[in-house]
Write a protein that binds this DNA or RNA. Structure first.
Length: 918
RNA sequence: GCCUUGGUGGUGGAAUUGGUAGACACGCAGGACUUAAAAUCCUGUGAUCAUUGCGAUCGUGCGGGUUCAAGUCCCGCCCGAGGUACCA
């Protein structure tokens, strides 16, 4: 009987569906395990063969854990708000909800074919009101919270109001947008509006004028992680800087906790390092420099307080509020001209153009330590958002300051002994101080500490920790996103009462901004509260819906809470999270922040959402090329192309097999090639190839549906794992897949002869048991270590061995079938039933291996001379070192190789190798 | 520039603590079965030399080092991929 994957896969997919095999409920008698895939954005292109890689891996792990006796939560859903559907709506008038629905249906159809064990009853879609209700709910909680530094957690804003009422700002140690100081009576005298505006400085979700990345082509603000090299990731449009009134989330308040949390989670070092860099903690000093002839100070931030004697000028960011204050009348025109010039430049221009630019303000500052006068400049190499937006420039020891000083011919004073700054600055943080007054002779580290102490004592500054991590801008001038549960009363924002949620996204017909430049929601009719107060016109960004979806899966239909106490306490957090590295600085930061906030609220019991995280590598495409001889209609085969002048042309990989072109299909592929002619080698047209990104334009996209159709889902699953280590990027090459199908056929052949089933109840032999237990040991180890590719090889070896042993014993095939289940569930289920079981193999028990079957009686020793292996001998496994040595030395071949030379040394590694040095 | 990765046959890759490099597949070559093809099965397959057999030498990006022994450890380079970018 033949292995008929089509029939088998259909049969068991129906069985699993009809029996709700993958439905999971809280079961306190079993330990829980939560396996999560990063949910996809359902794009119009559907899945290609690269997408399921991580899903297959997590599916294997889920099934394995279930076989081990865990109650496994393994859900799936869709990140279904987003730009592409809306862009498509603008172009075609098709409502984003319609396109999104269609794309989801297509994704589901593709996913179902692969045989995943998702509990689809828990599916979430971020664009559905019963889901985004809880996104809006979380926003309201953030609006109603502030970050208390003393308690190091988010607290209700009502606490803060009470404190202000009683004792003003003095009793409060909270994270705040600006330095505020007021008394209780001042607070109590404020109008409602004034109080609300003041509270905005404290709220975790707050409204403020922010410098944003605005993309005119998309008509929308973008987050830093939605931009690459000054272009939007979606669409590649230029991005510019603008100041806009935006909602933001005070992620920066959590910077230290986000950093500390990394030490407690099981992520790769590389990913942790990326997040550490993104958070960018730096310990430094804030120092005040007096401005000459003025009553105020300039506040700067530096991590190199030790170089204070090397400061030769100051630089302000163009956006700094100090600029207009310090600029002298004589320099005002020049400064204004420079500011205009900077404003006009887009983000992209600033990145690509690294020329030094700047202007002198005419003002001087006074070095608080040396009392020397130094000029104050403005330049865009100083960032307004970092530190105080002002720096002390030490050209001798900072390459940016150095370039600036050279360009404007400003003095450079080295303050580290023996360094040469004639060609470049000396940035390294080591050496001994010189030219530095009381710091002379100290090492850099000591000097930093000494300066900090000095500055503190003299009251000219304070020790300060700075983070690069910024607050997340949370408004998007878009339609297809969560509406804010916010309305405005006399321009002051208020959040809706929780009972009014969800605030439903209204229907509109035109998805473009309004004539007055307002976001698309400006077109919505009656977009206001029943009392007539207008609702917020912006919507939330993509990361809003994806920041807590893992919690919703625990309790997806709960109408009373994001997640019930019971569900949260049972499922706790994600044990294993699988997804791409591209979310390192976006989703994976936002989620951690969001979760920590909910933890502070007491909504969730774990402060880190994802315990272990694995990044699957990207599947690259493998493109094929044909070579057209220039100015002709003739194509020349790969190995003959050097003789001609040729143009390589991408050809659809689906009409190429093992790099041999199907000429007929090629002629029909495009009308241009109808009359093409070919120069062949050995009667074949051989194509060239290259590894590139998998994309339509390269004609190298392989659809999993086609693979499932031709080879079956089990073969696809096995082959994706066989391609290489999960975490590594690797090209997809359909060519190797035959080997996997052959393996499954061979496995089938252990059960069936050509005509019929042939199983035996006989007791297995020693060799058969050894083969099986070797496999159980290897596969168990490999799955625990996410080394699925080597498991596949182990399966092949075992089946090859059992085939040559002609093994058809149930006692071997039964456990084999069970450990096969995670990888190839359909064939495993079929064979499991064939073996006489009538319940699903998913609920079988993972077999343990038994060391006694793995013991070897004989060990093969490699016999080497001066490190070079010459031959091998088998000895009993329990033979001791001395005996091995004796036997080896007595060996005829040894004597021959030694040729009478005296031995210097003999090393015997038990069970492995003998090395004779002479 | 910085951070993170990776570099092993024609290809994808294996080698868990330093212990016979190239497992397992693909591809290729030869053979069996077949009227023929497909499918299947068997044999060979790192390179060079030798080939009558034994073999010999070189081989894990490059150059050094540690060690009885290095793909694996240490030092210094080169190249590819991904991320990040004036973060003071």
């Amino acid at each position: 009987m033949e292995y008929n994957f089509k029939e088998i896969e259909k049969k068991w997919q129906n069985y699993w569906k009809n029996n709700s095999t993958y439905k999971v409920e809280i079961n306190k008698n079993k330990p829980k395990y939560y396996v999560l895939d990063m949910f996809p954005y359902p794009s119009g292109a559907g899945l290609h063969v690269g997408h399921p890689l991580g899903y297959i891996a997590s599916d294997i792990f889920s099934r394995y854990k279930r076989l081990q006796g865990f109650n496994v939560l393994h859900p799936m859903g869709y990140d279904s708000y987003g730009l592409p559907a809306e862009q498509y709506a603008i172009q075609t008038g098709q409502h984003p909800a319609v396109t999104t629905g269609k794309n989801i249906a297509r994704y589901r159809e593709q996913l179902d074919k692969i045989g995943f064990c998702y509990d689809w009853s828990r599916e979430v879609r971020t664009c559905e009101p019963n889901y985004y209700k809880w996104t809006q709910w979380a926003f309201i909680q953030m609006f109603n919270s502030y970050y208390d530094n003393d308690q190091d957690k988010a607290m209700p804003i009502s606490n803060l109001i009470l404190k202000f009422h009683q004792s003003g700002s003095e009793s409060v140690n909270a994270v705040c947008s600006s330095d505020l100081s007021f008394t209780a009576s001042e607070w109590n005298a404020m109008s409602e509006k004034e109080q609300q505006n003041l509270l905005m400085n404290y709220r975790i979700a707050y409204l403020a004028d922010t410098k944003v990345n605005f993309c005119p082509a998309l008509g929308c603000v973008l987050a830093n992680d939605e931009i690459s090299e000054g272009l939007s990731i979606r669409g590649g449009h230029p991005v510019e800087q603008r100041v806009m009134r935006q909602w933001s989330l005070r992620v920066s308040a959590y910077a230290q906790r986000l950093l500390d949390g990394l030490d407690r989670i099981d992520w790769t070092d590389s990913l942790k390092e990326t997040q550490r860099n993104w958070i960018g903690r730096s310990e430094g000093t804030e120092m005040n420099f007096k401005v000459k002839d003025k009553l105020y100070d300039l506040e700067i931030f530096t991590t190199r307080a030790d170089t204070i004697f090397g400061v030769t000028f100051m630089v302000l960011a163009p956006e700094s509020e100090y600029v207009s204050k310090v600029t002298t009348d004589a320099q005002r025109a020049a400064v204004d001209e420079y500011l205009n010039q900077v404003k006009r430049r887009t983000e992209r221009e600033r990145i690509s153009d690294r020329r030094v630019s700047g202007v002198f303000t005419g003002a001087y500052a006074i070095n608080p330590v040396t009392e020397k006068e130094i000029p104050i400049w403005v330049s865009d190499y100083v960032l307004s958002g970092y530190g105080t937006g002002a720096i002390m420039a030490v050209p001798a020891h900072d390459s940016r300051d150095y370039a600036f000083a050279k360009h404007f011919k400003l003095p450079i004073i080295p303050v580290i002994e023996g360094c040469d700054v004639s060609q470049e600055s000396f940035d390294a943080k080591d050496g001994v101080m010189a030219n530095s007054g009381f710091l002379n002779g100290l090492k850099v580290k000591e000097a930093i500490a000494a300066t900090k102490k000095y500055v503190k004592e003299k009251g000219i500054g304070k020790v300060k920790v700075n983070y690069r991590l910024r607050d997340a801008i949370f408004s998007r001038q878009r339609y297809w996103g969560e509406p804010f549960p916010v309305y405005y009363k006399e321009g002051v924002p208020y959040v809706l009462d929780e009972s009014k949620l969800p605030l439903m996204l209204p229907e509109i017909e035109n998805f473009l901004p309004t004539a007055s430049g307002e976001p698309p929601l400006g077109h919505a009719k009656n977009w206001n509260t029943p009392e007539g107060y207008p609702y917020e016109l912006n919507t939330m960004p993509g990361f809003a819906g994806s920041s807590a979806y893992y919690l919703r899966y625990m309790d997806p239909h709960n109408d009373e809470a994001l997640v019930s106490k019971e569900a949260d306490e049972y499922w706790q957090n994600v044990d294993l999270y699988l997804g791409g590295t591209e979310h390192a600085t976006g989703h994976l930061i936002y989620s951690r922040f969001w979760n920590k906030f909910l933890f502070d609220m007491g909504v969730v019991c774990k402060d880190e959402p994802f315990h272990k995280l694995i990044n699957q590598g990207m599947i690259q495409g493998r493109s094929n090329f044909v070579y057209r001889i220039k100015d002709t209609d003739t194509f020349v085969s790969y190995n003959l192309k050097e003789k001609y002048e040729v143009t390589p042309i991408h050809v659809d990989v689906n009409i190429v097999s093992n790099d041999i072109l199907d000429i007929e299909k090629f002629k029909n592929w495009s009308p241009d090639y109808k009359s093409a002619e070919f120069i062949l080698e050995d009667g074949k047209y051989v194509c060239g190839w290259a590894v590139e990104k998998m994309s339509k334009s390269m004609f190298n996209v392989v659809n999993p549906d086609d693979i499932v159709d031709r080879y079956g889902a089990d073969t696809l699953r096995f082959y994706e794992m066989f391609l290489g280590p999960l975490e590594q990027s690797k090209p997809w090459d359909t060519n190797g897949i035959d080997g996997v199908l052959r393996f499954l056929k061979k496995l089938w052949g252990l059960f069936y002869t050509r005509e019929s089933l042939c199983l035996s109840d006989e007791e297995p032999t020693k060799d058969e048991l050894k083969s099986l237990h070797k496999l159980i040991k290897k596969v168990t180890y490999d799955i625990e270590n996410f080394s699925f590719n080597t498991s596949v090889a182990a399966f092949m070896i075992c089946v090859n061995e059992l085939s040559s042993l002609k093994c058809n014993k149930k006692k071997i095939l039964d456990p084999l079938t069970i450990i096969l289940t995670p990888f190839a569930p359909h064939i495993a289920e079929e064979l499991y039933h064939t073996l006489g079981h009538n319940t699903t193999v998913c609920d079988a028990q993972w077999p343990d291996y038994d060391e006694q079957y793995l013991k070897e009686d004989l060990k093969k020793y490699a016999i080497s001379f001066n490190g070079k292996v010459k031959f091998s001998i088998e000895f009993p496994a329990d033979m001791d070192k001395d005996e091995v040595e004796k036997q080896v030395m007595a060996n005829e071949q040894t004597v021959k190789i030694m040729d009478g030379n005296p031995t210097k040394k003999i090393i015997v590694v038990p069970g492995k190798i003998v090395n004779i040095v002479f």
